[in-house]
């Protein structure tokens, strides 16, 4: 199996998982959703194991890193913004809507968790790739 075939497999698996989860949501069946996701993951794992061709190289890793960073920035900013909006709406509405405020606070905690995870993983990789303040002569 070459990289192109692997990409097709990935798209097919993603379509299968999406369809299964959509059907599971319609029928309100969490087991079907979980089964779909697990089957998809297992299938891709087996395909990766069986494939002899190179499926991931430095260019793909670079692209993945850039895409992940962009997704992280967009998602974190969006969640932080939404949390502020929900907190403000919850407090200013008459009568005050505690549920909206709770949702806003929860979202802000998720944004904070995301920032904390980023900081920790940055620190980890920074140490791994030798960023240090020690000067060497």
């Amino acid at each position: 199996m070459n990289y192109k075939q692997f990409k097709k497999m990935k798209v097919l698996t993603a379509s299968f998982v999406s369809a299964t989860v959509a059907i599971a949501v319609v029928y309100n069946n969490i087991i079907l959703a979980l089964a779909g996701v697990l089957i998809g993951m297992l299938f891709l794992f087996l395909v990766r194991k069986k494939a002899k061709a190179v499926l991931v190289d430095e260019r793909i890793q670079t692209i993945s890193g850039l895409a992940a960073r962009l997704a992280y920035v967009i998602l974190t900013i969006t969640i932080a913004f939404l949390s502020l909006v929900f907190i403000m709406i919850g407090r200013k509405s008459v009568p005050p809507q505690a549920s909206l405020e709770v949702l806003g606070v929860t979202l802000s905690y998720i944004a904070l968790l995301s920032l904390a995870l980023y900081s920790l993983s940055y620190k980890f990789f920074s140490n791994k790739y030798g960023e240090t303040d020690d000067e060497q002569d």
Partner: peptide, 26 residues
């Protein structure tokens, strides 16, 4: 060439087209 250096064919295409600068190792 891709097989010999352990990357995908798409990476060789990208390098040839000067769209991707390879690492020193590659």
């Amino acid at each position: 060439l891709a097989c010999k250096v352990g990357v995908t064919r798409q990476t060789i295409i990208a390098i040839e087209k000067n769209k991707y600068i390879p690492s020193l190792e590659l």
